[in-house]
Simulated scan of single mutants.
Amino acid sequence: MVAAEDCRTAGRAFGGPTRWRAVAGGQSMMLRVIVQESVGAGAVNEDRAGSCAQAAWVIDGASGVMASQIDALSDAAWFAAEADRGLQQAFRIMPSSSTRDILRWVMARCREAALHHLGTNSVSANDLPSAAFAMVRVSQGRAEFTTLGDCRILYHAPGGPAALFGETALSAIEARTIALAREILTAQPDIAPALLREKLLPQLRENRRRMNQPGGYWIMGCDPDAADHVDSMTVEGDRLDCAIASDGFLRLIDTFECCDPSDLMDVTTPQAFAAMIARLRMLEHSPGSMLDYPRVKVSDDASFIRLTLSM
């Protein structure tokens, strides 16, 4: 049984490091959140970053590809908030359950909430919001990494360099979308972002039809079976430095290629995070940026949690 404390979700860092002590399998491990930040690219932030005694997580909401089916400013933000609340509740009421069981419970809860909002069962799962997800959890005296989609975990293994964890078939699928965006942008360098998305919409819909399907990609959504397809691993050791990031923040590594995992692991204060965000936004909005670094959206929400685990 884990000694539970109130979970927290933040769009900004706590007022200093937050220390949680979890007891699992008779061993005590400290989960210390150093930085916990989430900043939106627009009026609505569709990311969430949360933590509790046993775990820390980042959720990156994604809208359905059709018109929003849920009465909210953003169905992606609604889903991310719903999933975050579900994780907070799950770790309070079933802290000893496996991560897969917790995720199944959370996604079933999200499905019930979505159908309650819609007042019908006759809606395609592809039209409902979903989210990429990554979590670091204290489990039986070890660190457990879990991802679904393109949120990822950065970590310093004892004696090793900084590395990224999290594999997903979504990367290859999205690469086709980026290739198409490059073609469009090459032909129309000054195309408006809304028109670019309109031209990409058939490809985006084709991508979404492969969500949580065999031969497609698996992601946090309203299908609890996705919990059986997480990318996961456990890391042993008395101390582990790690971080969790949404794909919006990871653009610094994989889109603009101006940082490596070690650079992001060095983000250990809110001020350092703010400096990285300023650098990211400058790159996103610089002249010719969309053509030089093709992508679907000019800017994206960015979330980051820096933490340490120690015995």
Score class of each variant (00 low, 15 high):
residue 3 A to H: 07
residue 5 E to Q: 13
residue 7 C to T: 12
residue 12 R to P: 00
residue 21 R to L: 08
residue 23 V to I: 12
residue 24 A to Q: 12
residue 26 G to K: 15
residue 26 G to R: 14
residue 27 Q to C: 07
residue 31 L to P: 12
residue 31 L to C: 00
residue 31 L to K: 15
residue 32 R to C: 05
residue 35 V to G: 02
residue 37 E to G: 01
residue 45 N to W: 05
residue 49 A to S: 14
residue 59 I to K: 06
residue 59 I to T: 08
residue 67 A to Q: 14
residue 68 S to D: 13
residue 72 A to Y: 02
residue 73 L to S: 10
residue 75 D to I: 02
residue 82 E to D: 08
residue 85 R to L: 11
residue 87 L to E: 01
residue 91 F to K: 00
residue 91 F to S: 00
residue 103 L to Q: 09
residue 104 R to M: 12
residue 106 V to C: 09
residue 112 E to L: 04
residue 114 A to S: 11
residue 115 L to A: 01
residue 120 T to M: 06
residue 124 S to G: 10
residue 129 P to V: 01
residue 130 S to K: 10
residue 135 M to Q: 10
residue 135 M to D: 06
residue 140 Q to N: 13
residue 148 L to C: 04
residue 151 C to G: 04
residue 153 I to E: 08
residue 156 H to N: 09
residue 158 P to N: 07
residue 160 G to E: 13
residue 161 P to G: 03
residue 164 L to K: 08
residue 167 E to K: 11
residue 174 E to G: 06
residue 177 T to G: 13
residue 178 I to N: 07
residue 178 I to G: 05
residue 182 R to C: 03
residue 183 E to K: 14
residue 184 I to D: 10
residue 185 L to W: 05
residue 202 P to F: 01
residue 203 Q to K: 07
residue 207 N to R: 15
residue 210 R to L: 14
residue 218 W to M: 13
residue 220 M to Q: 07
residue 223 D to P: 00
residue 225 D to I: 09
residue 225 D to R: 12
residue 225 D to E: 13
residue 225 D to S: 13
residue 226 A to E: 11
residue 226 A to Y: 06
residue 228 D to M: 06
residue 228 D to C: 07
residue 229 H to E: 05
residue 232 S to W: 11
residue 234 T to I: 07
residue 236 E to H: 09
residue 238 D to M: 11
residue 245 A to T: 04
residue 246 S to C: 07
residue 246 S to K: 06
residue 246 S to N: 01
residue 254 D to T: 14
residue 256 F to K: 12
residue 262 S to L: 11
residue 262 S to Q: 14
residue 266 D to R: 15
residue 267 V to M: 13
residue 268 T to K: 12
residue 271 Q to D: 12
residue 273 F to R: 08
residue 276 M to R: 15
residue 279 R to M: 08
residue 279 R to F: 00
residue 281 R to W: 04
residue 283 L to P: 03
residue 288 G to K: 08
residue 290 M to R: 14
residue 291 L to I: 08
residue 292 D to W: 00
residue 297 K to R: 15
